[in-house]
Structures are given as C-alpha cells and as structure tokens.
Amino acid sequence: MTKFVAWGRYCEDVLERRAPHRQAHLNGLAAQKDQGLLITIGPTKDLRYFFAIYEADSEETVRQLIENDPYWQHQVWTDYSIHEWIQAL
C-alpha cells in the first residue's frame, strides 16, 4: 500500500455549511480509519484548509474517498490535491 497526502480548502462559511453534514462526514472518516485507509485528517486552526494522510492502493482510491465525502458533495471542501508521500521516519 502506498501513502498519500491530501490537502484542500474549506468554503468561506464553513461553520454554517458543514453543520448539516458533519455527522455523516465523521461517520465516513471513522469507517475509513477502521478499514486502514485513513491515517489522520484534520483542519487547520483557522478552518481554511484540511490535511490528510491515507494509505491506499492508488491515488484514484483516495480521490474516490474524498469525492464521496459529504463535505465534498455539499461544497464544504472546495478543492483539494493528492500527492504520493514517502514517509522518511
């Protein structure tokens, strides 16, 4: 399995827009973690960006995980990028 980092941007009114989708978002992340796909994820303190580390068989798998997330589907996340990552330590 390959490690990938993903980072992206939240919408301007993130607190209001995420509220109706937050529990479904968190449930999905917990399922990804239980499956061993998601290592960690979280927002920056200013709620402008998110950062995640995944372990998956391909970049396409990570893309599907992100794009199936309620935050992406409801434009809470507005853009993202994925990069293969080499963990040095």
Rank of each mutant, 00 (worst) to 15 (best):
W77T: 09
Y71M: 07
W72C: 02
F51V: 15
F50I: 07
T44G: 04
R63L: 07
Y54W: 03
R48W: 04
S58F: 07
W77I: 11
T78Y: 04
P70T: 08
I82H: 08
G36A: 13
F51Y: 15
A56S: 03
V62E: 00
V76W: 09
P43R: 15
T40A: 13
A52F: 03
G42H: 09
Q75M: 07
Y71Q: 05
I66H: 04
G36E: 13
W77P: 08
T40E: 09
L38G: 03
E60L: 05
I53H: 04
F50E: 06
L37D: 04
Y54I: 01
L65P: 00
N68M: 11
L65M: 08
Q75S: 09
H83L: 01
Q75K: 14
A52D: 06
Y71C: 08
H83V: 00
F50Y: 14
T44V: 01
D57K: 14
F51K: 06
D79C: 15
T78I: 14
P43S: 15
Q64E: 04
W77E: 08
W72Y: 10
Q64N: 01
Y49D: 10
T44P: 04
T44A: 05
Y49R: 15
Y54C: 01
Q64C: 00
R48H: 13
A52Y: 02
I66P: 03
H83M: 01
W72N: 02
F50H: 13
E55L: 05
Q64M: 03
G36P: 13
D69G: 10
L47S: 11
D69C: 11
Y49T: 12
D46F: 05
W72I: 04
I82Q: 08
K45I: 00
P70Y: 10
G42K: 11
A52P: 03
L38K: 02
P70L: 12
F51P: 06
I41K: 03
Q73M: 13
W77N: 09
F51I: 13
S81Q: 13
R63T: 10
Y49S: 13
E60N: 05
I41M: 09
Q75N: 12
L38N: 02
D69R: 12
E60I: 02
N68R: 14
I66T: 03
D46H: 11
Q75P: 00
L37H: 10
T44E: 07
D46K: 10
N68S: 14
A52L: 06
Q73L: 14
I66C: 07
R48I: 00
D79W: 15
T61A: 13
I53A: 05
L47C: 10
L65S: 00
Y49C: 11
P70K: 11
T44W: 04
